[in-house]
Simulated assay, not measured.
Amino acid sequence: MAEPLPKDFRLPTIKPYTGSVDPRAHLNRYRAAILMTTASNAVMCRGFFSTLDGQAQDWFTSFPEGSISTFADLSGRFLSHFASSIPKKKHFATMCKLEQFAAETLTDYLTRWKKEAWSVENFDEKAVVPIFTSNVRSRPFLRDLVQNSPKSYAALLYRATKFAEVEETEQRKKEEESGRQDKAPKEDRRAPRPPRQGPQLAPLRCLTPLTHPISAILEHAKVMGIVSYTAECLKISPNTDPNKYCRFHRQQGHDTDECMVLKRHIEELIQRGYLGQYMKRLGQGRTQGPSNV
């Protein structure tokens, strides 16, 4: 306790150890942080207490005064006391069961493989090469391994990483090409497809009762790409009200839900086979808004 602290010395700020996780990891973090200073062996022992909490702190304070002579002595006692929190290594034979899933990418499999390999005891880099070859599913990579077996485990991982990068690039390319094809508006899958030579429309004397406001149905129809903005929509009524706005005409003059032109257009779409989910059935009340707008 009489050992002077180095100039500008600051205790390392690492997560306190409570005794529930691997003590080796905590000890390594402390050493890495304290070695950046010019702290002596005595200061290392004294500063270690500040990185403990809970039962680990109780353990430290239980030492009789003067019972710790070096940091190596303290480290040994620390690892011995919390040895039960050190994760047990798995048997090497567990690698034989680590097969690539059918829908698992090579990148994900490599991540899972490396994590498992790290937890294996007495890892044999020579014996693991044929095991990896037997467990992998990716066909192009598997053919390459069979035709040209890697000479080392490091060479195997390097080649696997390269094939994983190619696999990811090809997948992104497919998604981009598929996205360009899907950019064209699609009709609602729940609505029946209209015949190629449009049906004979029923007279629009009576409008079909609807479950949602016309303005809400308009937004859904716009997403489907079935709204037609004809020349009629551009006519400005002489009885305009500047306080109202029609999202169908995109101009002031009247409210969207009061627009007769829009109501007739929605009715026409319904008669053509679209927007059937908004037709009010017998006994059905109005909801708050369409769930898929």
Rank of each mutant, 00 (worst) to 15 (best):
S50R: 08
L275M: 02
H249F: 12
K126P: 00
E258H: 14
A42D: 13
G283K: 06
N28K: 12
L275C: 07
Q277F: 06
K235I: 11
D188L: 12
S20G: 00
V129K: 00
S80W: 05
F123I: 05
R143E: 10
N122D: 12
F123C: 03
E268C: 08
R264G: 06
P290W: 01
E104N: 06
A221G: 15
F132T: 00
F71W: 07
H212L: 13
L142Q: 13
V293A: 09
R250Q: 14
S138A: 10
D144F: 03
P6R: 00
Q147V: 01
D108H: 07
H265F: 14
P203E: 09
K89R: 15
Q251W: 06
K222H: 04
K97H: 11
M95S: 06
P64W: 02
Y245E: 03
R193M: 09
A202L: 15
V166G: 01
F82D: 10
Y245H: 14
R190H: 12
R137F: 11
R46W: 06
H91P: 01
K15W: 05
G225F: 10
L262H: 03
Q171A: 15
A154M: 09
Q288W: 06
Q147Y: 03
P140Q: 00
L282C: 11
P203D: 09
N28C: 10
S152Q: 04
P192W: 12
D53T: 09
T107M: 05
H220R: 14
S119N: 10
C233E: 04
A184I: 14
S75I: 01
E104A: 11
T94L: 10
M44K: 13
K244G: 01
R139Y: 07
Y30M: 15
G198L: 06
T107H: 02
R286K: 13
T105V: 09
G285V: 14
L210F: 02
L74Q: 01
V120Y: 02
R159E: 03
T37Y: 07
L234A: 11
G198Q: 06
S62K: 14
P199K: 08
R112D: 05
C259N: 00
N243E: 13
E267F: 07
S215G: 09
G66K: 03
A164V: 08
H254I: 05
R286V: 06
F71P: 07
E187P: 01
T230R: 08
P195Y: 05
H249E: 05
I34H: 05
T37P: 00
W118Y: 08
C246E: 00
E268P: 02
I131H: 04
T105H: 06
F132I: 11
P185L: 15
P195F: 14
A191N: 15
S138W: 05
F9G: 00
V129L: 03
L218R: 02
Y274V: 08
Y278R: 03
A127M: 04
V128M: 01
F60L: 13
E170C: 14
A117D: 03
D241K: 04
M44N: 13
F248E: 07
L142S: 12
E3L: 02
D182C: 11
S80N: 07
S119D: 04
A184V: 15
Q200V: 13
A32H: 07
A154L: 13
D188Q: 11
L210D: 07
E219I: 10
T230D: 13
Q181N: 10
S228T: 06
P16D: 14
V166S: 04
